[in-house]
Nucleic acid binder design. Structure first.
Lengths: 339, 339
DNA sequence: GTGAAAGCGCTAACAG
DNA sequence: CTGTTAGCGCTTTCAC
């Protein structure tokens, strides 16, 4: 069924080495021979076998993408961004779910390496030493999204999470709020969650406020979980006049919990999110949030990886994309209005 | 760096054929030699190269998953379901975006085949002859999600879309609604969208009602698009007392449009969705919808494919999973209540 | 320029 | 049982 280089060679009356030369134009080939080869290729509808090639070159035309969970719209959009750029280069994505499990991440990394993936886009909550070791030893090109790596030779794309959290918290402070809750993800040290936490904390500090531990709610990135966390917060009699959620999904869970508990958003409690997933626009109320250029981040990660795999040098190894605070209906007095 | 079978053979003092035999236990091997080989493997931390194996067996340990768009939570959850089961079998997913483009689907199929993927899970709006031809010629195991294929040997998992749409429409009819709009996706013949359309139509018919073309709104699966469609429907002065959306995202777009236009949901207009994505529970108002067991569908697709790739026969080739109508706050008089 | 031959790392058929 | 020998399909020295 499938044609091989041998059949092409036979039909064209040349050696397979010559055929190889024309399909890769790796070396000069006599014009008429080249012609014959081309004709044979067309006639047989020959297409070189990428696996065989891969075995020789230790490449597969595949790039590995490691994410915690594709069900999270943030990651889904990142993946789409990556796909958007790499598709043009004939690469395919191997999608690996890690569920925030470092063991699993390493296993996947190992396996991807063995399958000769050409590069990796890695989204993890934390870059461990084991990760570091893996990348330096394997020399596999990698770009991190939402995470920086201390290795000077690694690439990354992110936003300034600290600054963003500082800004959104300040927005509430400026308007007189003093009981501002933070809804955050589990913290392991150098995560974006941590930076957001710091931004929140420092904003309070800049107003000479001490952080109240009761107002720091721990959740994960799931709606349900945040819903429960906020409900129990309310049921224990705690209150806040504003809530800074560190993701839009969290904001949705919070708003739902507040509403179910009889609070109006934004009249009684104002809530802000983070990310600006599409649902932030269409939720009721629409959600004031820190917009990350998610698709752009995915695309950038893809482009950086392509550059790295191609051995092309790049100006910025750690790209920080701009964020914007988008004001919608989940907060009062929107400086700007939007759909 | 990476060890090969040759080095193991040398260290163990046997031929590489023997090594191959022990790692695959394809043929009996003398216990003490096996022991030595095992020891050598451990010592060298040898792991067989899957690409080299693949070249021989025409297998890659990869399975291709073709979806229109990972950004749609429905597909994201399907993918997660698939991953959930195939991960245990050491397979990886190659994710391909098709954006509803049949050309692109075929290109991907072709490429996946060349990369020796072991099987395919295919989500497409329509199975064309070209697709059919590809699968019969390549003999690549495939299972369809949300689509059946006339080929008797093909596998699929789906729900009864016709019945589901009939039920939800009947729910409105039973309660006296007579101006029931349908929000549907573009129709190409044998799609689930078409079946839902028929279900809606026949439900009306069962009440001796003629379908009013003005009440059939054409959109796609995107929120924004539905939002615009419904707005323009309202602005042109049309009205309906209930709306049957053929996806939850559509329902969200519709609710938002209705609300922005001054209608209350469900008091003025009742709206139902389809799919039961997580957001259906957490939207305000929460959405009455036809629940498809999405994750289960993904898992089932994965299992069927595993079975097919393993050459195991299966009882049901076309599995229809049960759907349920879930009543929430976007409709009145919920027979059952839910979070 | 071009063909023969070796090899990527592994499996499988074939003797013994 | 086990080693030798061919490949899988392609690339790449290395002579000519």
């Amino acid at each position: 069924m499938k044609k091989t280089i041998n059949e092409v060679a036979k039909l064209a009356g040349v050696s397979k080495a010559t055929v190889s030369r024309v399909i890769n134009d790796s070396k000069p080939v006599n014009p008429d021979k080249r012609e014959k080869v081309l004709k044979a290729i067309k006639e047989l509808e020959f297409r070189p076998n990428p696996v065989a090639r891969g075995l020789v070159h230790k490449k597969s035309g595949l790039i590995g993408v490691l994410i915690p969970d594709i069900t999270n719209p943030f990651f889904a959009e990142i993946v789409r961004g990556i796909e958007g750029v790499i598709q043009a280069y004939q690469f395919n994505i191997v999608l690996c779910h890690t569920f925030h499990n470092h063991e699993k991440e390493l296993e996947h990394l190992q396996m991807l390496h063995e399958k000769y993936v050409d590069g990796i886009v890695f989204m993890t909550s934390k870059v461990t030493e084991a990760h570091q070791k893996f990348f330096t030893e394997s020399k596999l090109p990698v770009t991190f999204v939402n995470r920086r790596c201390s290795d000077l030779n690694s690439y990354s794309v992110d936003i300034n999470n600290y600054q963003a959290a500082f800004e959104i918290t300040s927005f509430f402070l400026k308007r007189g709020h003093r009981k501002i809750a933070l809804i955050r993800a589990p913290l392991t040290d150098k995560t974006s969650g941590y930076e957001r936490f710091k931004g929140y904390q420092d904003a309070l500090k800049s107003y000479q406020l001490l952080m109240d531990d009761n107002l720091v709610l721990r959740s994960n990135f799931k709606i349900e979980n945040t819903y429960k966390t906020v409900r129990s917060f309310l049921e224990r009699g705690h209150q806040a006049t504003a809530m800074v959620a560190t993701s839009d999904l969290m904001a949705i869970g919070a708003i739902k919990a507040l509403t179910d508990h009889g609070h109006r958003v934004p009249e009684d409690v104002e809530v802000s999110g983070f990310d600006d997933i599409p649902m932030a626009t269409y939720y009721s109320p629409s959600i004031t949030t820190v917009r990350q250029p998610i698709l752009e981040m995915g695309k950038t990660a893809g482009k950086m990886l392509i550059a790295k795999m191609g051995g092309h040098p790049i100006l910025e190894k750690n790209i920080i994309l701009p964020h914007t605070v988008i004001f919608r209906k989940s907060t009062l007095i929107s400086p700007v209005s939007e759909v």
